[in-house]
Amino acid sequence: MPVHDLGYRKWVGKRNHQLIRALFVARSGITLIWRRRMLKFLLIIAWLPIAIPAIGIFGFEQGLTNETYRRTIVQALRGPMERPDLALQMLQDPISIRHEVWSTLILGFFRVPQLYSMVLLVGLIAPLLISYDLRSKAYLQYFSRPLSPNEYIVGKSAVIWFFLGMITTLPGLTLYLLGVLLSSDISVVGMTWDIPLRILLASVALIIPTTALAISYSACTVENRYASFAWFATWIMGSVAYQILTNAPRMGRGRRNRIDMDFDTERWLLVSPYHTLGKVETWIFGLNTGESSVWPAIVILLAITVIGTLFVRNRLIARLSV
């Protein structure tokens, strides 16, 4: 029993605008997810790989004036980074490749550690977002309030956007800032001013379609483990399928009864979300994307976003009509 029971009292006050109510859905989701200890651990782990490109940028900037650093960078460009063209230019005119080296390092950060972290993080949090609401019929509570299915979807998606922003956009921008701070020359800002914008764009390209895909899986089922399974299966199967399809001609070469097939590796790239995203991100960072057009990959990502969002919307409306 309360110490002092006031009974029922009227409430008089100014209500928030309807449009910002989706923010409360996002805030509530973020609060709930934040309580998971595993997530905090994952966020810390996801930030650690920032050290590698940061060292790379530092080394490059030092290499502009220091011969020892320059030799190390040239070796790295010839070896692990597989860019002998840049290695040559590094020896001749290092300033001219500053933008490209920075972009390559930041893109590498986006492509490898952050994409894997993203797959893991979204696989852990996204399936809970809508499937839990379907299982506990929470949608009745949401939609008996002045909240539309679209606002609900935006609110739920914003939970994933927030966490993905924390492991991609924020470290990406931090990395850029570190690069500027570690550089001995302030003119670096003038030469690389567009990189933060490219980081933001690459984050959008990464976050929006993956979120739409993840929440559509979450809306498929009331069992979040099925949604998790579907999510991980999409990434693993997509990559495996791409590897098989692009390596098949090479493996068949030299055998007596091999079937001659004209494989276009760029076309098969679309079966793998990892490689599709990679194509678009490489294009955003202004790096070499090969001969084929980036547009099929962009269209695929847009289609995933639109179809995924419409699917979630229809699932919610169908549930309400029962």
């Binding site: 209500r15 709930l32 609401d133 506990s136 019929k137 929470a138 009745l140 008996s144 309030r145």
Partner: peptide, 17 residues
Amino acid sequence: RDRVGYLPEDDCYIAGL
């Protein structure tokens, strides 16, 4: 909906809160 309070028949709740 702003002027109506609804108590649904179904057992519904927001898990985790």
